[in-house]
Amino acid sequence: MSKATVCPNCGGSDIDNDQSRGNAVCVSCGSVIEDNFIVSEVNFQENSLGGTSVIGQFVSSEGKTGSSLGGNFRTGVGKESRMITLQRGKDRITHIGNQLNLNNHCLAIAYNFFKMAVQKKLTRGRKTDHIVAACLYLACRVECTPRIL
């Protein structure tokens, strides 16, 4: 993680590095200096039965998640269903995004939001079209693209 010493927006030097949220914020103006820190350390947690589990998850360069730390860690449960959900979401994002004349960068950002929602299990019990619309709206807001959904 690179330490930001000066805010590029206001020039302030009081930067709050929050490891738990993974961001660095200027205390003076509130600008997010750095977002989504990547932590390269592995932590373990002991449960009540004396077993251990990994805190966090492995992310490969291809974007696949899982654990490569041994056979005692359960990964890949429900992987096929998740892949189907991601593919359907990507198809819907592409279809609706093309109707709104959004560029590929906005579609990629919306798909990343969709993947986060699936990973955090925020899609269960909700219609895919509603999740897709929310992800496209977020992508438009992040990219300052004026669209009404």
Rank of each mutant, 00 (worst) to 15 (best):
S68K: 15
I148W: 08
I38P: 00
S28M: 00
Y137R: 14
G71A: 03
L138M: 15
A134H: 12
S68V: 11
P8W: 05
F37M: 07
C144T: 09
C10E: 08
N103Y: 06
C7D: 06
S40A: 01
T94F: 00
S28K: 14
L86I: 11
G70Q: 09
S61P: 01
H105V: 11
R82C: 05
D91S: 05
V54G: 03
E41G: 02
L100G: 01
R21E: 14
G30L: 00
F73L: 11
A133V: 04
D18C: 11
V54R: 15
I96E: 04
L136F: 01
G70H: 05
V39K: 15
T145G: 00
M1T: 04
I15E: 04
Y137L: 05
C10L: 02
Q99V: 01
H130S: 09
N9G: 01
A4V: 15
A117C: 12
V59N: 05
V42Y: 01
V142C: 00
G78A: 08
L102F: 01
F113N: 07
A24E: 05
T85I: 09
E62G: 04
S68H: 05
S13A: 06
V59M: 06
H95A: 10
T75L: 02
L100T: 01
C26W: 07
G63W: 07
L122V: 01
N101F: 09
Q119C: 01
C7L: 08
Y137N: 12
M1G: 00
V77F: 08
T145C: 13
Q99H: 07
L102W: 02
I148R: 12
C140A: 10
Q87K: 13
V32P: 00
S2R: 12
V32L: 08
Q45K: 14
C144D: 10
E80R: 15
G12I: 07
P146H: 03
C135A: 07
I55E: 09
G76I: 15
F114V: 08
A117T: 11
I131Y: 02
N17M: 03
Q45M: 11
D14Q: 15
H105S: 11
G22E: 05
E34Y: 04
D91C: 06
D16K: 10
E62K: 15
T52E: 13
D14G: 00
T94H: 09
L102K: 06
Q99S: 02
S67E: 05
P146V: 09
I38D: 02
N36H: 14
V42C: 03
V77C: 01
N43R: 13
H105F: 12
N9S: 10
C7W: 06
C26V: 02
E34R: 07
T145K: 15
T85Q: 14
E46N: 11
S20M: 07
R21H: 02
Q87N: 05
N23D: 01
I15R: 04
